[in-house]
């Protein structure tokens, strides 16, 4: 059975990707399961979807613990523990990354030996209108890596999944998917191997515990404090970062601070300061700043710049 997991951010079309690939498998005569995993988190937050495909009926269900192929639409998710991109990977698990950097670089960075295939980025993350096409490109690349899905099945699957969106959207998705499919076919020499089932003998015994009785002072669903949400680093959702040019900031009536939906801009020493741990990158501040002192910068560039500044400092 093939077990494939798609990782991306809300809004990048991972559900679409899993459906396209699922349909393509189906058209190739496979039994298929595909499903998105909905969490409570929203656009920009890490999400995933998954597919199982087999020649026999599939009894396994739920989240894929041990994937054969992991597809990542946004390489900024890889280092995030919350995204769980590398969860359950085995030695032969193939990782398909949308990234400007090479597989070798990533292998070194992550200190893993897995085959890593990269699909060059084309700047979609910076253009929210392009975001919705990432899914199809990922599905195309995944089909290419798998090597068992024909170009025709892929095109047909896209037609079935996206046909209702109109010819223009369909064409754009089809072109993206097929281009990724061809590019990967040409470059990648990896094999995705089907994983087996977990054997009944020997097996790892679950470490069950008798849940101890705890009275309601402890075991009621109550948070006995305020403001604990600051421990959630929603800054990880960001693909674009607002950056203040203090030479242009006129210290108005703090438009940015008032309008920021998340309240992450405070005013200190008469200057607005952005809390990047929590800024989700909506860019309302960029759009509203009366003196145009806030620019939208791709998160990656901003990360690199900060790293460089930190390097200089040390």
């Amino acid at each position: 059975m093939f077990r494939i997991r798609f990782h991306g951010r809300g809004g990048q079309g991972m559900k679409t990707a899993s459906r396209i690939l699922g349909t393509a498998f189906f058209l190739e005569g496979y039994e298929v399961q595909d499903a998105p995993r909905y969490g409570a988190e929203r656009r920009g937050a890490p999400i995933f979807a998954y597919i199982r495909a087999d020649r026999k009926p599939i009894n396994e269900r739920g989240i894929i613990a041990g994937p054969d192929l992991v597809v990542v639409a946004d390489d900024s998710l890889v280092p995030l523990p919350a995204a769980g991109v590398l969860q359950g990977i085995r030695e032969p698990t193939v990782i398909l990354l949308k990234s400007c950097e090479s597989g070798a670089t990533w292998r070194q960075r992550l200190n893993i030996k897995n085959p890593i295939v990269t699909l060059p980025e084309t700047g979609e993350a910076e253009d929210s209108a392009e975001l919705r096409y990432i899914g199809a490109a990922c599905a195309g690349a995944a089909a290419g890596v798998l090597g068992i899905i024909s170009r025709e099945s892929l095109a047909q699957a896209i037609q079935e999944e996206l046909g209702r969106l109109g010819e223009a959207v369909l064409a754009k998705n089809r072109a993206n998917a097929l281009a990724s499919f061809d590019a990967i076919k040409k470059s990648a020499a990896v094999n995705v191997t089907e994983g087996g089932s977990i054997p009944a003998q020997p097996y790892k015994r679950p470490a069950w515990i008798d849940l101890p009785f705890e009275d309601a002072r402890i075991s009621a669903p109550v948070i006995h404090a305020g403001l604990t949400s600051v421990e959630v680093r929603t800054g990880l959702w960001r693909t674009m970062a607002p950056v203040i040019d203090y030479s242009l900031c006129r210290g108005c009536w703090w438009v940015c601070s008032t309008f920021c939906p998340d309240g992450v801009i405070s005013v200190r020493d008469n200057q607005p300061v952005i809390d990047y741990d929590h800024c989700k990158g909506c860019l309302v501040c960029v759009a509203q700043c009366p003196s145009h002192a806030i620019a939208a910068v791709p998160e990656k560039e901003e990360q690199a710049r900060k790293k460089a500044v930190a390097g200089e400092a040390s």
Partner: peptide, 11 residues
Amino acid sequence: LGTGTPMCAGC
């Protein structure tokens, strides 16, 4: 109001 809520960006 604390940051770190799961509301969508730009809510």
